[in-house]
Design a protein around this nucleic acid. Structure first.
Lengths: 124, 124, 124, 124
DNA sequence: GTGGTCTAGACCACG
DNA sequence: GTGGTCTAGACCACC
């Protein structure tokens, strides 16, 4: 389910949260469903449990999962909606990136082509 | 010329390289022009000289500036072109971002609106 | 009678003791009345019997219920009085909370309004 | 500055965040001021640096402090305002507590007396 | 079994 | 020097 790149400069626990987001958005992780246990995932990915825990804590804080000590962690019912809300809040990053490309003299059509490709990947 | 935000999470030396890029693209820093000296900039911005040096080294590595030992650093003649080439090389990041937004269920029109806004900021 | 929120961060056994207190105070559970059996409650709430037992043990320790081996658990005659005594003993927590709000700069009237609302809920 | 109770049931890192809040509200920690370094505090309190770090991370997340890697952690300019906002958001806890006391049969005057005492402590 | 906290000690990037 | 991440291993409360 998860794929960790130890060479990447992005922290392992961040890779975990990002990939969890994707799994939720793609519906592989469904609302109410149990997340893999901290220990189980730690052995499966050969990662220290503390690192998994850190990722889970972050996801819990963002309301994407909730943890029930003694029972496990579960995907929140409104996880997808929350992610979308978070993403929309940061729409400014898109503007910034476009601005950078414009400043560099990249034609808008080139930029939009890339956007189209990205959107096609998800059949939208 | 430079504006450092010490509260920002992006490293100071990165803020320097990014802003230098902008200064080159906007033509404020012209080809052949001398960059501010490390010492001068370090006092002006109240920043450790090592940090300035690190930024300059990075810019040098990317061929955006060149250092003439004993005389200082100067903007490369093809700096603008190089930046544009670098940006185009990373066009995949645009695709990735679009893909993320698509996955989150953000309508393409919303995304494109943000792109338009970004492009307008530079009068393109 | 009982309503367990598995998403809550408060432990299940604590939810049980708290709700039992409320049931005693509201008179739904009367002095001498039998508590639901551990087994019955465990199936009704789909909760591990150990968890129910832990709650009952705690209530017993506080003298709110007593267990008659072989016959079950029963509400103590002075349960209501005991709860009130316990609450009064911890009146310091109210002071502490008020202190916190004062320190944060919350006007006393705002605080008292909330208190009024809380008291009204019980028709006092 | 800090006082840790290792017997307390509240986690050490939480004691740290709570006490930091108090220090900010009382003005002992002023906006822009540097927080004690993770290492320094860890030796002063005889606590593992990771635990301090955890507290600082939490404070950073809540916007009460900001961390500048390589320079240190600093109190946010709007830290006091943020704390007040957080507190006001949880005003429901006051209502709940009042409700509990009302249910237990504690006279409102007794409750309000405790509130008065709490508010007096801060000369409000 | 589960998640949550803490310690110890290491390494990295940044200034 | 600073904060940030990761590992290893331990202990706790809860279910």
């Amino acid at each position: 389910m998860y794929l960790i790149d130890h060479q990447s400069r992005t922290a392992v626990y961040e890779q975990l949260t990002e990939q969890t987001e994707r799994l939720i958005l793609t519906g592989i992780l469904k609302p109410g469903q149990a997340m893999p246990s901290v220990r189980a995932l730690s052995v499966e990915l050969a990662i220290n449990p503390n690192t998994i825990q850190k990722a889970y804590t972050e996801l819990d804080r963002r309301g994407l999962i909730y943890s029930a000590p003694g029972r496990g962690c579960f995907v929140a019912g409104d996880a997808q909606a929350r992610i979308k809300a978070e993403v929309l809040e940061n729409i400014g990053e898109v503007e910034d990136m476009a601005c950078r490309y414009a400043l560099a003299g990249v034609e808008k059509s080139v930029f939009v082509d890339a956007v189209d490709k990205g959107y096609l990947k998800n059949g939208a």
